[in-house]
Amino acid sequence: MDAIILQILNGLDKGSAYALIALGLTLIFGTLGVVNFAHGALFMIGAFCAVTLQKILSLSHQVVDESRKDFLGNPLKVDVPYIYEWFGETTGQAIIDWSVPLAILFSIPIMVLVGFAMERGLIKHFYKRPHADQILVTFGLAIVLQEIIKYFYGANPIPTPAPDAFTGSFDFGVLLGFDPFTIIYPYWRLIYFAFAMIVIAGVFAFLQFTTFGMVVRAGMADRETVGLLGINIDRRFTIMFAIAACVAGLAGVMYTPINSPNYHMGMDFLVLSFVVVVVGGMGSLPGAVLAGFLLGVLESFASMAAVIDIIPGINQIIIYLVAIVILLTRPRGLMGRRGVMEE
């Protein structure tokens, strides 16, 4: 029982990341009709916003400490962040410590800008082109972005820890009456799950309860008619692209304390996110979220030692297996409707 609860919890945070990325993908599918293979790269850029802010906050100058020696036996040069001098060491350290949450604010304008530039600069020109072209160009763009990040930040993962207040883990087992240390769960993953829920709720509320959202939904259903009504749907779609980029970016920022970001992290999520979108039902936002969590939880269960013992290798194929079963039984995915994204 405790093992099952644990894997459900585990699946939720993984599912959160899948759901957030798949949500953005579906928004772009639904509004622009573009298959955006660069969406994983947006997730990665978000994560590197957090890395960048951490680097900016820890910008330092070197002070020679005569009492200590470096590896060559010369006096040790100690890096002292400027921020220590401006705010004092305690406050300065606290600001650096909180760089990941602060990066949420830092990343929003950057992601909006990146999303805007990407849509206006490149993707706009591919609206009328076949999907194969869109996939090639966005995949190419993803590789370019990845290489740019690698050039500036190197290939190794960069540790970006959560604030000290959120390190450590919560003992669910004790809460539920199990022995201590049976169901423990890191605080930051709980925060990630809560954050994902807030962002998802925010996007749904925005689409459901604002005039802007209503127009976008109308445009998703019938772009031409909305255009004929004299509404500039293209501009709204550009804004939706920027919002989708922002959602992916925020998912990336908050993910950095879970796994140290590296240039390749976007690709790791991209393929799975596409499976999530297809399983959830193309163009269905609730479907993307549902499928994200479903596949996250299933993946967690499949990697339990007891399950692998019964079916070796199941942990590597579970997602694709489920995708095949769902597409065979429900060809439009879990929540896909007839006629959406079909000829």
């Binding site: 009709g33 999907h131 194969a132 019938d222 596409f274 060809p331 994204m341 000829e343």
Partner: peptide, 14 residues
């Protein structure tokens, strides 16, 4: 109705 050549299967295939 959004015009699109894309189908789920087509996408998986690609």
């Amino acid at each position: 109705m959004t015009k699109s050549n894309l189908t789920r299967r087509g996408m998986l295939k690609t």
